[in-house]
Design a protein around this nucleic acid. Structure first.
Length: 211
DNA sequence: CGGCTGATGATCT
DNA sequence: GATCATCAGCCGG
């Protein structure tokens, strides 16, 4: 039982406010920074799963690492939705990945959610992920989606609407955001498009990328 | 803690 | 047929 969430992050105390679309930056880089510290909520089976987003990556227009680089396909269609929609795809045949679309409708760009600090439904998250340590419940994009019970069925969902999966206002004190290169890509790998809360133990990736 | 490896299947060429 | 926006497990220091 490692670090208990700070008081400001504890469940139930105050209702989390849904983010409206107009507060989301259009630009994926700005959106990626904006989402560090915001919350992700999934109301499912009468329970609430939620956490604080602590790590993101931006995928831009003209970015060779982006799934949208070669244009629109059946898989990446949700990347072209107006900002604030879910783009979910299956990575390495097994792992769902959750992105938040950025930009105007018709523009293929998004922000990958890479790590979450669990807040509500921690035991339910642990169950859906097998016996994982709290620190590992949502540390990494595949783990995050698994813990939050995000599946392909959520592809295209409006995260700024009335649905069960949504983005919430930031919780907790202001944080310092650090920037590095993105993880696990080979093309356009030098771009500084990964953002995370400095010092947060729920952030994924090798230590050399945690400054 | 850091480094390596096999699993695994959709997607696109 | 190649390429993955990864993960868990194992091994060594």
């Amino acid at each position: 039982m490692l670090p208990k969430p700070p008081a400001a992050l504890r469940s139930g105390d105050e209702p989390v406010r849904r983010l409206s679309r107009d507060v989301l930056p259009l630009d994926a880089t700005e959106l990626a920074r904006f989402l560090v510290g915001a919350t992700l909520v999934h109301d499912v089976d009468g329970a609430r799963l939620s956490g604080r987003i602590v790590e993101t990556e931006a995928y831009l227009v003209g970015d060779a690492a982006s799934h949208a680089f070669r244009g629109r396909t059946a898989r990446n269609g949700a990347m072209f939705l107006e900002r604030g929609h879910a783009y979910v795809y299956i990575s390495y045949g097994c792992w769902p990945m959750l992105n938040v679309s950025a930009g105007e409708a018709g523009v293929g760009t998004a922000v990958l959610l890479r790590a979450l600090e669990p807040i509500d439904g921690i035991e339910a998250m642990r169950e859906s992920r097998g016996a994982a340590r709290i620190l590992d419940i949502a540390r990494g994009p595949g783990r995050l989606a698994g813990a939050m019970r995000v599946t392909l069925a959520d592809d295209g969902a409006d995260l700024c609407g009335d649905g069960p999966l949504w983005l919430g206002a930031p919780l907790g004190p202001p944080m310092t955001i650090a920037t590095t290169t993105r993880i696990g890509i080979t093309k356009d790998a030098e771009r500084p498009l990964r953002f995370f809360e400095r010092g947060n133990p729920f952030v994924s990736g090798p230590r050399r990328l945690i400054d």
